[in-house]
Design a protein around this nucleic acid. Sequence first.
DNA 1: CCCATAGTTTACCAATAGGTAAACTATACC
DNA 2: GGTATAGTTTACCTATTGGTAAACTATGGG
Lengths: 119, 119
Amino acid sequence: MSSASATLDGVFHALADPTRRSMIKQLAKGASTIGELGEPFDMTKPAITKHVKVLESTGLLTREVDGRVHRVEIDPRPLDAAQRWVEEVREFWEGRLDDLAGYLDGLQKKGKGKGKRRG
Amino acid sequence: MSSASATLDGVFHALADPTRRSMIKQLAKGASTIGELGEPFDMTKPAITKHVKVLESTGLLTREVDGRVHRVEIDPRPLDAAQRWVEEVREFWEGRLDDLAGYLDGLQKKGKGKGKRRG
DNA sequence: CCCATAGTTTACCAATAGGTAAACTATACC
DNA sequence: GGTATAGTTTACCTATTGGTAAACTATGGG
């Protein structure tokens, strides 16, 4: 299952760059060519090529070559992995709060402390 | 509002490293010291210090110095920004599908094609 | 054929990232 | 005071990242 970790590495890394995030948002609204995708950015074509490759390599973007034009569109599935990871953290976090509530509740009901003392 | 983008840069970058993701999960279950936090990793102490600093600088982690021990705990709020960003992308994506459905619906009702021909 | 257009590849650069070893700071404890 | 423990800082190394300019590939159209 180390590929799941590799996917998360790739997705989070892809999203860590503002140019790529902007591209993703643009593509979420609709497919476009490489030229259209790169036009909003004050950046040379090789830079755009690189950003697109990063997104493509994580599966966030698919490419369809149509003549000399490359048409790209978003594939939101890798975002699921990222979102699930964050939600899992949140569940741990909320579980921890539940445990604390249960612990405090137990203290009150039994008038006895069995868990680790804190502080 | 460029600080929102800076926050996202930081959070996504922080989450792009498996060691830091593992630390976050560990901390989501409960607070710990730097030593406990770093113990699962086959890594020297300066490396742990660096990872903790990255998490701290994005606000994902808070530190409380208690004698010679540094007690750290998670602050999940920066995760909200990341999660909202992903959900916004999803909304754009679903809106796009709605538009497509509306477009196709319009085609059927009017029996008329006004959009770009494809293929 | 000739030229414009769309995009990639290659080679290069400076900055950042992730790691280490060694030295240092600061607290705890006998 | 002396020593172990917790953690940071400094200096260094290598790999990766984000960007560029220049050359290249490939398609479209007069």
